[in-house]
Write a protein that binds this DNA or RNA. Sequence first.
DNA 1: ATGAAAGCGCTAACAA
DNA 2: TTGTTAGCGCTTTCAT
Lengths: 331, 331
Amino acid sequence: MPITIKQIAKKANVSIATVSRALSGDSKVREDTKKLVLKIAKQLNYNPNILARNFVKGKSNIIGLVLPDISDEYFSEIIRSIDDTSYLNGYYTMVMSSHENRSLTESINTMMNSGIVGGFILLIPFINSEIKKALNSGSVPFVLISGDDDIGDFDVVTTDNYQSAFRMVEFLVVKGYKKIAHISGPPDNNDASLRKKGFLNACSKYKIDVKKSWLAKGNFTMESGEKACSKLLNEKEKPDVIFAANDMMALGCYKAIHSIGLKIPVDIAITGFDDILISEYANPSLTTIRVDTDRIGKVAAERLIEKMNGSINKTIQKKEIASQLVIRSSC
Amino acid sequence: MPITIKQIAKKANVSIATVSRALSGDSKVREDTKKLVLKIAKQLNYNPNILARNFVKGKSNIIGLVLPDISDEYFSEIIRSIDDTSYLNGYYTMVMSSHENRSLTESINTMMNSGIVGGFILLIPFINSEIKKALNSGSVPFVLISGDDDIGDFDVVTTDNYQSAFRMVEFLVVKGYKKIAHISGPPDNNDASLRKKGFLNACSKYKIDVKKSWLAKGNFTMESGEKACSKLLNEKEKPDVIFAANDMMALGCYKAIHSIGLKIPVDIAITGFDDILISEYANPSLTTIRVDTDRIGKVAAERLIEKMNGSINKTIQKKEIASQLVIRSSC
DNA sequence: ATGAAAGCGCTAACAA
DNA sequence: TTGTTAGCGCTTTCAT
């Protein structure tokens, strides 16, 4: 049986209200009363019942985190970052993976209506009207982490997909590349489409002629990158560099290229996006864009906590976290 | 304001007790009363207040998950697996990362005493007396996921590190390798030391002479693998295969080997342990041991839920999840 | 089969 | 400064 304030009250010869006040440090409690209560609490190894506290306060200090139906190191880092920030602010983190059994809307619904979380963060690679409807249905505050901030009137933290892809092309142009191919990600993925857009607009700006056959399609997996690359290598006019929309696909390109005995970057260059752990150690090491996942999680959590505290301005905030070009040996 | 059973009761002209019963499906409630309540609940879009329910029941249906101070894809998969299993059994999952700010014992203490979770799973690469003490201090059920099951009287789910390492050596012996080196992981890591033990005992059994200089030390990072490999390559008598205690270090070996122009596996062969995502796509693809993280999470969560239900035998259970040798092109 | 009422641990409004 | 008390939403006895 856990210790309750009742037992502390008894032992200290005060009321539970006084104990509650002393413990919360808040109100006007006489210094020595406070000291006594704290001493007894410590000696009894008292821990407040968080559930009871949340319950009576009518709000929860648990932050929900809705994950999409994939798992990679990216999420692992975001989870850690969010949990760190939550912890430092006195909150807990509850994860909820969406998958075949539990749809995204079900997760949102639970977050909104079960009273279990006081706010939540949604990692969301794409959005549709059903999801929007679910998000608009409740009063629990939330923040989205998404590839695109143009997804309605929601607080959202994004990475600068468009800008970074644009800069990558600029870098390639400066390097002297003229024939630039792109392997895009899933069509319904916001990160993917913004990266593609950045690529296309930069090419257009720098008068890079992008052949239609150089716009290959992938789905962010290594296999899809390998396949797309093989196709590109079979074109009568080959590109001299391939900009893959993520590192996984870029590494798939490595495989396709090495399998036919070509060398990176002399025969063909490769660049990626994300800077996953392995990219630094690939052979050759991959030039890519480092997404600041740590900061993304932190900013999202801090914004959510602001909203949960209700302290600050309620206007929608779109925060874009800058990524960084990481130049290595693959181009 | 969320809907409560009170409002349903009013609308249905019954007491809140009846609503509660009808909703929980449990007791003897007249069929039509039940139907009516359910209908109104649905029409009002009622969701039970989980916090209140946990609170009144005096136990939580939230499962805590304590993560160590590292993040990699392995944890991402385990989190997902545990959350899946929790969900299917009507539980929620709360994560708690340990790190510089929040010690492991603090996490355990919170799990034990805050009433916020009804049980927890501890991902724990090593154990010490302080942790043991914390684990023995409370009455909240828990399950460990650890590399070694010989860590006291706790329920623990492990992977078969020893067996698998042993089998890997057997495989290498059958392949004809005679000079086998090993790069071990952190000395205080249970997975690492069991893998090393399996390696050593298998070598002993098959009369493989293991030179002392072939027992290199790493710390599971790619860099440490690279460094250890370089050292091995500088020995006057080089091994003809290196068995790294994890894939990351094995891939570090790739780097060291490629950097001096040698080829895998003709000049020297490599094997790893873990089968991380990238290993299949490394060049050459890495022969390794696939750890069944999905199953580890599932088994741990199921065992914990058993304990939380208090339904079954209380005797300590040690469950070892079998890993699988994955033969590819690196040896 | 249903209702009335107690109570889970805590906070907060109100009294003193 | 401290105590008394109501009540958060729900489950669960105990009556009826």
